[in-house]
Design a protein around this nucleic acid. Structure first.
Length: 285
DNA sequence: GTGAAAAGGTCATTTT
DNA sequence: AAAATGACCTTTTCAC
């Protein structure tokens, strides 16, 4: 077994940091999965996306329902960042395709603004905020606030952060109706294929970074509970942020990403699992 | 010329 | 009172 993963298998080192998990509305309202993929991808390809000798989901644990989710188990804390933000009837799975709902707050969308399907309110918010003279503070917590229609004004920093993470960009605006040429260049298949090839690197990077922090912390040894809690906080923050960034890329391909953090009965971190899988359903694009 | 789509502008309303 | 918000309007550009 890879030594890095053996370290994760040693239980009772780290208590779970008690973050209140805020799951974005488009994720928490997730009901079903319709996987899509490219013709070049086969069912077997996903196995190559895992780092060697690192435990992954057993292949038979995946279904198109949430019934397998470890979150329902009493001894497991989970961060399920599954997503299905696309129209199931769409033959193309485009991140920037027109959506009925705002990808920022889930309100009714009025069109694609600054590259992302948003409502008028989030469009105006992003325009105002991105040109304002004052600097936008960092997100208020490592686990960013959920942004929805009701609370979108509660935390402007997290709202603006979500806009940016979704790809809203004021430096690359299209004034007036976008041309077909622009649409084709933006939404070209090569872009998605390129994203697909980056998946394995993303997952490996997550493990490498977590392990590097793990090693550094062990060298210093944990002298008190505060240190342990601090380490758990850093680990969780890094893990969440990197996974969320990866998730945004995966989501463009209509794929599903899941992250679990298992917990022992004593409340300690037992193991981190990362899984992502491409499930060909309609090889139509 | 006309309609569609996206960015920018305006201003009444709401919040602080 | 000042600042922020968001619905609505205007301008610009593209396709037909």
């Amino acid at each position: 077994m890879d030594p890095s993963f053996e370290m994760f298998n040693r239980s009772s080192y780290f208590p779970i940091y008690p973050y209140p998990l805020s799951v974005p509305s488009e994720i928490s309202s997730f009901n079903s999965i319709s996987f899509r993929t490219n013709n070049n991808i086969t069912t077997n390809d996903y196995s190559s996306y895992y780092p060697d000798n690192i435990s992954t989901y057993p292949s038979n644990s995946y279904t198109n329902s949430r019934s397998h989710s470890p979150i329902n188990q009493s001894n497991t804390t989970g961060v399920d960042i599954s997503i299905d933000r696309y129209n199931n009837n769409s033959s193309l799975c485009l991140f920037n395709s027109r959506s009925d709902h705002c990808l920022v707050c889930n309100d009714r969308a009025s069109g694609i603004h600054f590259g992302v399907s948003t409502c008028e309110a989030c469009k105006a918010f992003f325009r105002r905020t991105s040109i304002s003279s004052y600097s936008i503070p960092e997100p208020c917590s490592p686990i960013r606030c959920e942004i929805n229609t009701k609370n979108r004004n509660n935390c402007p920093s997290c709202r603006f952060d979500k806009c940016k993470r979704l790809g809203m960009d004021r430096d690359n605006v299209i004034y007036g109706k976008p041309s077909k040429q622009h649409i084709n260049s933006t939404y070209h298949q090569d872009y998605f294929i390129e994203q697909l090839t980056n998946i394995s690197n993303e997952l490996i990077k997550i493990f490498q970074n977590i392990y590097s922090i793990y090693q550094i912390s062990l060298l210093n040894s944990f002298e008190n509970k505060q240190q342990i809690d601090k380490f758990a906080q850093i680990l969780f923050q890094l893990f969440y942020e990197q996974t969320f960034q990866s998730h945004e890329k995966f989501a463009r391909l209509g794929q599903r990403v899941e992250v679990w953090i298992e917990q022992t009965n004593k409340g300690c971190l037992k193991r981190i699992k990362i899984g992502q899988r491409i499930c060909p359903k309609n090889s139509t694009y």
